[in-house]
Simulated scan of single mutants.
Amino acid sequence: MTWLRALLLALSLLAAQSAAAVSPDEMLADPALEQRARDISAELRCLVCQNQSIDDSDADLARDLRVLVRERLVAGDSDEAIRQFLVDRYGEFVLLNPRVNNHTLLLWGAAPVLLLAGLLVLWLMGRRRRAAAPGLSPEEQAALDEFES
């Protein structure tokens, strides 16, 4: 029963972690705008933490970016305009999921190509191993047949 309590505590701490980064003074009064801000913030990389979204990060720069996103939403910018503003300012690195462009084709294409190449190598090695494995001699095959019957 104690392991169940520990698991529930760990899960509740993980669930509360993302909510802890956004402070109440940052939140917008309009729930629809706040939800849009959270959705945009979840897609933007914290430039200090690098593997966290600005929505999850407690870094000062992440807070500044969250405030900037909310300011631009209140000013009437679209979600894409806000993303483009941040990309123009910080580069595509600010996006957690980079766009597919000419300069990101290698990033998007390398994983499937490497996976297929690895599978091809494994298949070729398996074929060679089967071809190099000696078969049973006629005496061994006769003994095997006698044993099976």
Rank of each mutant, 00 (worst) to 15 (best):
A10K: 01
A37T: 11
S18A: 09
I54Y: 02
L7Y: 07
A16T: 04
P98R: 03
M27L: 14
P31L: 04
C49P: 10
L119C: 14
F85S: 03
R36Y: 04
I40H: 05
L65C: 00
A32C: 06
S41Y: 07
A131Y: 08
R89N: 13
E43Y: 06
A19P: 01
E71Q: 08
S12E: 01
A111H: 01
L4D: 01
V121S: 05
F85N: 08
M27P: 09
L116Q: 14
D79P: 09
A110Q: 14
S18Y: 09
A131T: 07
S41A: 09
R99P: 06
G76C: 00
L47Y: 02
L47N: 03
L105Y: 10
E80Y: 11
D64H: 08
V87H: 04
I40K: 07
M27R: 13
L114K: 06
A59N: 10
L9Q: 01
V48M: 00
N97C: 05
L95I: 02
E26I: 14
E43G: 12
E80P: 13
P98Q: 00
S53V: 03
M27G: 11
G91E: 10
L105N: 12
E26T: 10
R72T: 03
A29N: 09
L120Q: 15
D64Y: 04
S78Q: 10
R129D: 02
G91C: 08
L7M: 06
L14E: 04
H103I: 14
P98M: 02
V100C: 06
A21D: 08
N97I: 02
A111V: 05
D79S: 15
P24N: 11
G126T: 08
L28F: 12
V48K: 12
